[in-house]
């Protein structure tokens, strides 16, 4: 027999798992600090790669000047400027990603709390069902025991 109440709860859980829950449940595996640190690290790596490619494009753009002035260039100051800009960009993106992913994690926890409440409801339902079944078994056992000890006249024909 289909239990409508159980199907309703399980349907809502399934819909959530299929839509936004896909991303939120992945986040649930992380602690807040671990997730934020992991995402900030990924951001820093991506920014480093992007910066290197940007330098490459800048070198191609200024290739005429670089080739012409290759001997007389002050590489130390150029290196310091590159490092300075790199650290500035890294700091900006680290701060943006830190706050962004922190907010993202907190929002996902709110959605997950509703999901967990539904799960608790389903679990409670299963517990009550098991208790009802146990009571039903106890009743039938009691009835069987009473029928065995009863007289012939007491039997249902």
């Amino acid at each position: 027999m289909l239990d409508e109440k159980k199907v309703r709860i399980m349907t809502k859980l399934s819909i959530y798992e299929k839509t936004t829950g896909r991303y939120d449940i992945k986040l649930a595996k992380f602690y807040r600090s671990d997730y934020v640190h992991y995402q900030v690290l990924r951001t820093l790596i991506a920014v480093t790669l992007g910066y290197v490619l940007l330098l490459l494009l800048a070198a191609v753009y200024k290739s005429d000047y670089l080739i012409a002035e290759a001997v007389t260039l002050d590489y130390a100051s150029i290196g310091k400027a590159i490092l300075r800009y790199y650290l500035m960009i890294l700091a900006v993106f680290a701060v943006i990603s830190l706050f962004g992913y922190l907010i993202h994690y907190n929002v996902s926890r709110k959605h997950l709390s509703d999901y967990y409440n539904l799960l608790k409801k389903l679990k409670k339902y299963y517990v009550l069902k098991e208790e009802a079944e146990a009571e039903g078994i106890a009743d039938t056992a009691g009835q069987a025991a009473a029928a065995d000890t009863g007289t012939e006249g007491g039997r249902n024909l």
């Binding site: 991506a46 920014v47 992007g50 490619l53 940007l54 490459l56 494009l57 993106f93 990603s97």
Partner: peptide, 14 residues
């Protein structure tokens, strides 16, 4: 193509 990769690395990955 390099410009696209730079855009993704800095901005679109968020």
């Amino acid at each position: 193509g390099l410009i696209m990769i730079i855009l993704y690395a800095f901005f679109l990955r968020f």
